[in-house]
Amino acid sequence: MKLTLKIWRQATTDATGAMHTYQLDGVSEDMSFLEMLDVLNEQLNASDEEPIAFDSDCREGICGMCGLMINGQAHGPEVTTTCQLHMRSFKDGDEITIEPWRADAFPVLKDLCVDRSALDRMIQSGGYISANTGSAPDAHAAPVEKKKADRAFDVATCIGCGACVAACPNGSASLFLGAKITHLGELPQGQPERWDRVIGMVSQHDHDGFGGCTNIGECASACPKEIPLDVISQLNKDLRTAMVKGR
């Protein structure tokens, strides 16, 4: 198929960017979205133009590196990551707009690559458990209720891609934050640091300039891992409890 691509190009963080239009022919519907961009880059290379910078790593939907705003939707029209999106979701003659995640906490590095370190800083501010290293404990050493184990597992699938931030009209990272808080908060290992965790992570979130959540819900529909909105309620509940406890 033949496509018209409108892509954001920006040389460096401080440079002013703009949308550029490219024509691409011979795209197969079996290609992934990133393979389609690879083909475009080969074409650009051949004509001595600077190829388009975009992020990817695993290309199998588990690392969270890829992430593009495709036709106004984070990761495009399907519930999956950009690398797992295939060209069969588009048709011949389509015009596709591709932009980087837009959030001041995610500065553009080049073209479609953004710096998502702000998510790592949130993890460093409490999204962990402190444990002595050594040999792994027996799997059944700490019993976990089935319901809690299931919920923790479901939200532990968050890959930190940042689509929730990109999709949120407020530019809030509450879904990511809620996923981490719920994941560790449901497990016995997460209890000792539970109340300091929520305060630390929320402070870091606000410090890095993410917006405040107003429960619009665009995040959950953009999330490739279908993290549900109730993690944000859990985040708020933990925050309320922590404040009552005077943390």
């Binding site: 705003m69 707009t97 529909s221």
Partner: peptide
């Protein structure tokens, strides 16, 4: 964004 869709809100 140049183009932003709101999906489910």
């Amino acid at each position: 964004y140049q183009y932003k869709k709101n999906k489910h809100s």
